[in-house]
Design a protein around this nucleic acid. Structure first.
Length: 311
RNA sequence: GGGCAGGUGGCGGAGUGGUCAAUCGCACCAGACUGUAAAUCUGGCGACCUUCGGUCUUCGGUGGUUCGAAUCCAUCCCUGCCCA
């Protein structure tokens, strides 16, 4: 911990400029980038996820980008475990890990730990989902109350997924998830130093709108067509993603082109807003007001200065 | 010039005498979030008051009717469609 165990963590909403700033940072200190992004990890989703360009990835080693086929399940927990290992490897190479990402839960799982719980049990989940479709959600809540009253009381009944997860954990471990949350946090072996990129709201929204248009110009629709040709459908969690979902709907004739563009932008803005809500509560983050800098290099320089001075 | 339809909160669009500051959708704001998280979900949204609650100004303009009007009447302005 402490000296030599510092990890630079760069967060911020979509379209805030994380990727560019991270690349600039890598020029200032020997480092490797760990992407904490639940969608950039997937192959074939390039344009819509604003994945770092191949040239950028050649400049700096990137981890958790382009590593899984879209049909593979992935999760914050899995990310936390694997990224922890990768951080150790980067330290072993005497470099600084730079965690870059907008997936709040992924970042949290990595730098604060997530409880050592079991991974998803697809069959068990499917069975519970069928019961929910059959209108048995109240029964499930009752079952949860019987084995884990804490969780039953805490979990919002409008979020079936959380109920399912709690029952799943009990099913797999015999212990209430609420107890595991308290007792089984994974230890953190490094010192994260957090920075967040932020913009005036209107400026951010303008950037988002503009980037959506750029993605379409860059061939997002063709990217979706290619996915379709490979047999991928929007059912897939990896494709339940801003940009892809709207284009799929457009391709199926469910919405017009203009409507698709409108929704794409709107949902991107909403996503950015949720990201801000998530990150705002983390008091450790030092916010970088992007308007105050000329370019990404200057932002990186400022962050670098603060990072080196920290601890 | 004539006929018809209509002007409601940022937008769309309900409401047709009291229970309307005004259903609802969108936009927007705020929040939650421990293994699907770019997901999933909650709240707010005329102004003012610290909250329960209360006060004030709103439904194109003006003037009426009425105990009471977004809702009825008159008139004026504006918009769309149709006939000239």
């Amino acid at each position: 911990m402490r000296q030599g165990r510092k990890v630079l963590v760069l967060v911020g909403p979509t379209a805030s400029g994380k990727t560019t700033v991270a690349i600039e940072l890598a020029k200032l200190l020997p480092s490797e980038i760990i992407s904490a992004d639940s969608r950039q990890i997937y192959q074939l989703l390039d344009i819509g996820t604003a994945k770092p360009a191949r040239t950028q990835r050649q400049e700096v080693p990137h981890h958790f980008v382009d590593e899984l086929p879209p049909e593979r399940d992935f999760s914050a927990g899995e990310f936390g475990e694997r990224a922890t290992q990768v951080i150790e490897e980067i330290f072993a190479r005497a470099r600084t890990p730079i965690v870059v990402g907008g997936s709040g839960l992924y970042v949290q799982a990595l730098i604060d730990g997530i409880f050592e719980g079991p991974s998803a049990d697809r069959e068990f989940r499917a069975a519970l989902e069928r019961r929910i479709v059959a209108g048995e959600l109240p029964h499930l809540i009752e079952e949860l109350r019987a084995v884990d009253p804490d969780s039953a009381a805490r979990i919002d009944p409008t979020k079936p997924r959380r109920i399912i997860r709690a029952l799943e954990v009990y099913h797999l471990t015999g212990k209430p998830i609420s107890q595991l949350h308290r007792e089984a946090q994974r230890a953190i072996t490094f010192a994260p130093v957090l920075f967040g990129l932020t913009w005036e709201r209107q400026t951010l929204y303008d950037r988002i709108d503009k980037r959506c248009e750029e993605m379409l110009r860059a061939g997002l629709i063709e990217e979706v067509e290619a996915l379709e040709q490979r047999g991928y459908t929007p059912r897939l969690n990896a494709l339940n993603t801003v940009g892809y979902a709207e284009v799929f709907a457009y391709r199926r004739g469910e919405i017009s082109y203009d409507e698709m563009v409108r929704l794409f932008k709107q949902n991107s803005r909403r996503y950015a807003k949720r990201q801000l809500t998530w990150f705002r509560r983390d008091r450790r983050i030092r916010w970088i007001q992007m308007e105050e800098y000329e370019n990404a290099a200057q932002v990186a320089a400022a962050i670098h200065r603060l990072f080196v001075a920290d601890g």
